[in-house]
């Protein structure tokens, strides 16, 4: 099947802004809510997610099109994708440890969390369903990662302020955070007017 004829620059911007993987597709929420309490951790996790998303979207594309489709094992894709993601996270962890121990201290503790981050598996599944080409998958993976990173940074900045505000007791914590995310999602839809997509 032919990949859809979608140009890369709009795809990159759409995946960062208008169709942000987190705000429009709800993926990667678990770690998003718990980590966004702290800005520095948010930055570290965002960076790690972007890196792993970029790598796994490409790798899963190769595995899917070069191995699973020719062997007729498409129905095993969920397992294979998650194994690829888990191994990729492990390898990334080892490489970072060797190359830059300093970066490892920032990113290290977040990497294991990423395996069960739905955004990573979600991007691989979307790229398969949408029949993206290899380059489109890479761009989509990168854009989604950057979008996630941006969203978590913004949220952690907002949460800092919100926590000092007079929030009703029962709404404190997860409640107000979820509503804040709702406002962010609305703001991001506003980017739609800027881009010639959607």
């Amino acid at each position: 099947m032919n990949p859809p004829d979608i140009t890369l620059v709009p795809l990159l911007f759409a995946s960062i802004f208008t169709s942000n993987i987190l705000l429009a597709n709800f993926l990667g929420m678990c770690s998003f809510i718990s980590i966004s309490k702290d800005m520095q951790s948010s930055n570290g996790l965002g960076m790690a997610v972007t890196l792993v998303l970029f790598l796994t979207s490409g790798l899963n594309w190769i595995v899917y099109h070069m191995v699973l489709v020719p062997l007729g094992l498409v129905y095993l894709r969920y397992i294979i994708f998650i194994i690829v993601i888990a191994s990729m996270v492990q390898i990334t962890e080892m490489v970072i440890d060797r190359v830059s121990p300093k970066l490892y201290i920032t990113l290290g503790i977040f990497l294991p969390l990423i395996t069960v981050n739905c955004a990573i598996l979600g991007v691989s599944l979307f790229m398969e369903i949408r029949e993206y080409s290899f380059t489109q998958s890479l761009v989509y993976g990168l854009g989604s990662g950057l979008g996630w990173w941006l969203a978590i940074m913004l949220l952690s900045a907002i949460r800092k302020k919100v926590e000092k505000g007079p929030v009703p007791a029962a709404l404190k914590g997860p409640g107000i955070t979820v509503i804040t995310i709702g406002f962010m999602a609305m703001a991001f839809i506003g980017f739609g007017g800027m881009l010639p997509v959607q």
Partner: peptide
């Protein structure tokens, strides 16, 4: 068949 915003 043709390309939409996200896919075919």
């Amino acid at each position: 068949a043709g390309s939409g915003v996200w896919g075919t």
